[in-house]
Design a protein around this nucleic acid. Structure first.
Lengths: 245, 245
DNA sequence: TGAATAGTGTCTATGAGACATTATCTT
DNA sequence: AAGATAATGTCTCATAGACACTATTCA
């Protein structure tokens, strides 16, 4: 934002906020999509979102508002972070629109949003979206892809996995988050001790116990750590030579 | 970007692109700043940047253009990635401006940009900026802080360190990057073998050798890897209890 | 009692870090 | 030869992963 010598007037752009809301439903990684009711891309699945409300609205606040309006979710209760700005010239047929994407992580919810303003919203398995079997509007596939990559990466070094869980959770539940998001399987016994060894990751929550079929599990809550040291490392996937090289 | 029922018209915003250009100069981590010639914040140091040129300009292209205009650097030759959007309502006294920040990494350059359009540009030690001894305009301190954090983090898992080096480099030079950006000291001998063990990180570049005082070093170039497996881990800093907890 | 899930013990191979040693150049 | 930097060797300790085993509940 340095000074320029000319008196030339820069163009103003429409700014939208789009949301990638990720959650686990029955051990399957899901993203929230809405069906578009108007052109362009009418009938297609798209990310929830909308335009900035007024000039004084903060981007983060706009994301919170859209979260409430379109998904009936109270964003102040869970993880919400900015993903990035998407501004390719041709991304919106109506004209130049800059979209700022946000990534939200929510615990598993009892039912998809229903009976609310967010009528057309539905949880869709991430796998289906990434594989292309659910065509998305605009450049939303790219945005979802970036969001998933961000989430996968942050599971390693941050306590993000706890954002997929409720206020308290068992270690097995936490493991299901890692397995679903990473699409891997991990040894329960090693996972058990590993996560407990990371300082500040999780801490015991009373001696409450969950109702299951076998031995009841201890409950934990998210700890104060903002980074995981040592990190939770992603298992090697030797069957698929990819990513590196 | 779902449909809304109302006929309400969303406001349009000015969109700027700001650049955090990082480099190493004499083993010290630097950021490029320019002195503002006009209000607001006249005389203060600021990030190079400017408004989007026209409606059809891509964000990335705008970053490349500003890189050329304000710093006389050819961005196509080095690392450039988006950092994020900054849109707090009060960040620009002139009115609502949304800024999309980019992070650029360049090899050490012979001299600060001089005799060009980027006259007021100067390399400033990152440490001075982060400590607050160089006051910045707007929310640019926050942006620099985020950029440095991004760079520090990416050194661990990506070959980003090679972006600080020239086309070919010695392992000792690569180590200086890690040490300057992380502000740590590492064992040269362990570093030497560690970086070579990461598949695709670096590869031998001829049997060329650099001119130094002692035994000439082998030259390397960046390999094809986009991720480092295993990662280059940041040394523990036991003297300062921070970050975690 | 058996099935199911939770939690502990133990072994081993690998890798990180500490640090001695050797190699190859300039002056 | 001295000094300097590059490269290799070796040791030790910690830990990740594999997997046997014990514990505690419900049906």
């Amino acid at each position: 934002m340095a000074d320029t010598a000319s008196e030339w007037e820069p163009p103003a752009l429409l700014v939208a906020v789009d949301l990638v809301i990720l959650t686990l439903r029955g051990s399957v990684f899901h993203v929230l999509l809405v069906e578009r009711g108007i052109e362009p891309f009418q009938g297609r699945q798209a990310l929830p979102g909308g335009f900035l409300n007024h000039e004084g609205e903060d981007l983060f606040d706009a994301a919170l508002r859209e979260l409430k309006e379109e998904a009936d979710l109270d964003g102040s209760r869970f993880h919400l972070e900015q993903l990035g700005a998407y501004g390719a010239p041709g991304r919106d047929p109506r004209g130049r629109v800059l979209s700022v994407a946000y990534l939200a992580i929510t615990p598993a919810l009892p039912e998809p949003v229903a009976g609310t303003d967010a009528a057309g919203a539905s949880w869709t398995p991430v796998e289906q979206v990434l594989s292309g079997s659910v065509p998305l509007a605009f450049d939303h596939l790219q945005i979802v892809s970036d969001a998933v990559e961000r989430a996968r990466s942050k599971l390693e070094h941050t306590p993000l996995a706890t954002a997929f869980c409720g206020a308290t959770f068992t270690i097995a539940e936490l493991q299901r988050v890692y397995e679903a998001v990473w699409d891997v399987r991990m040894d329960e016994r090693n996972f058990y001790r590993k996560v407990q060894r990371v300082p500040g990751f999780i801490e015991p929550a009373g001696s409450n116990r969950a109702v299951t079929r076998g031995r009841p599990a201890r409950m934990f809550r998210a700890g104060p750590a903002t980074a995981l040291l040592p990190p939770i490392t992603r298992p090697e996937v030797p069957s698929r030579p990819e990513e590196v090289e």
